[in-house]
Computed example of a mutant assay.
Amino acid sequence: MTTDIAAIPDNYDTPWKEAIEHHFPEFMAFYFPKAHCQIDWQKGYIFLDQELQAVVQDAELGKRFVDKLVQVNRLSGQEDWIYIHLEVQGSAQAEFAERMFVYNYRIYDRYHRPVASMAVLADDTPSWKPQEFGYDVLDCQMGIRFPIAKLLDYADRAASLENDPNPFALVTLAHLQTRATRTDPQARFAAKWRLIQLLFRRGWARQSILDLLYVLDWMMKLPDYLSVQLWQNVANLAQEKKMAYVSSFERIAIEKGMQAGMQQGMQQGMQQGMRQGMQQGEALALQKLLTKRFGVIPSDTVGKITTASSKQLDAWLDLVLDAPSLSAVFDGPPPSTH
């Protein structure tokens, strides 16, 4: 079965919004550590999304993933509380810096409090790094300079991101790998599965893991047949880890598998649809692993894989990482019938 992943629209704005709202201090610590150190986090923070929309509703200057207005308290200074105006921008736009300027002064004009604007640039243009807007006319200077975090700057730091305990290290990896796998569903499946495994190793609280699990799922869309396999993997991993809240993952996995099975329109019922989807996912995953280890796979071997049972595929998957040759995978011990 083949599915064009390009036909599945990637969802960036919802996962970014959810991640920021659930982990705002971690967001600031990861992308804007200097600002993070100046905020009194013990006094909490308040999201003011409705207030922001009221301020900028007639000043739309280009599409963005997320815009946020947050009230925070500073550790020192004459003003105890200030506003943070935050943008997550998904594409390079000539008017972006101007929008940051307009939104900043409109917020200040409405509330007469200090406003710190900052931006996460989530686009695909390495050279695009707008940080200021302004003008100088008749000895009158007006403008803004704001800090940015460019996600593409993290593209060569995969290893450090995998080891970083901040949840936005995984969000950054997910965003970059979603962009990089637009046309390769198998590569996205492998990347998403690895990120979920990394998430489970973090040792975070139940709700934090669930929050990030949903973010990864929203962001890294998969064809239905791979989605079924992925969520079965998630349920199995939760069982293996003997997590106290394994039922939560089982419920999510079942819901995801059922949704994918319904979308596939299997005629023989939901259980058969899920089994077929998982088996197809296993077959494709095995082919990809074999290709990475041993190069191009002979056509007769591909045929053997596509017609194999789920039990046989599981046996081959167990052997593929350690086998010294392609033939050793298929000449290995047969799967147990018990």
Rank of each mutant, 00 (worst) to 15 (best):
W16C: 03
I84D: 08
R113C: 08
P126I: 05
A35K: 12
K68W: 02
A59R: 12
F294P: 05
Q89I: 03
L48W: 14
R113S: 10
E240V: 12
W16E: 01
N11I: 12
L48Q: 15
D123S: 04
A119Q: 10
T301H: 04
F27D: 00
L138D: 15
R99M: 03
A253V: 00
V246D: 10
W218P: 00
V102K: 10
A191G: 02
T172V: 04
F133A: 12
D331K: 10
P185F: 07
A238I: 03
G281F: 02
A244G: 15
A174Y: 06
H85C: 08
D123G: 02
A187H: 05
M266K: 13
L61V: 09
V115P: 06
W16A: 02
G62M: 02
W16P: 04
A323Q: 03
E162D: 11
E87C: 11
G257F: 00
Q272N: 09
N11C: 12
L313G: 02
R145W: 08
A244V: 11
M278F: 12
R201G: 08
L319H: 06
V171Y: 07
S310V: 08
L161T: 01
K63Q: 09
A315R: 11
L121F: 04
T301Y: 09
A97M: 01
A7M: 12
P147F: 00
R194I: 04
S327N: 13
E95N: 15
V115I: 05
A92P: 01
Y103A: 04
E51L: 08
T178A: 13
L210M: 11
D322T: 15
T291C: 10
D13I: 08
N166C: 04
L286I: 00
L226T: 02
W16L: 09
A116Q: 15
Q287Y: 07
L138G: 09
G134I: 07
G303S: 10
Q312Y: 00
N163I: 04
E98G: 06
C140N: 14
E79Q: 15
V72K: 13
M1S: 10
L290R: 00
E51P: 07
V66P: 02
S336T: 14
Q207T: 06
K256N: 08
M266W: 13
A285K: 09
L61A: 10
R157F: 03
L170A: 03
D322M: 13
Y108C: 08
E98A: 12
L289G: 04
K68T: 06
E21Y: 09
D49L: 01
S310C: 06
D10P: 14
F65G: 05
F30G: 02
L321P: 07
Q42M: 11
F30W: 05
Q229S: 13
E98M: 14
V66H: 03
A190S: 11
N163Y: 06
I196Q: 13
A155D: 07
Q272E: 12
P223G: 00
H36R: 10
I252K: 15
G77M: 06
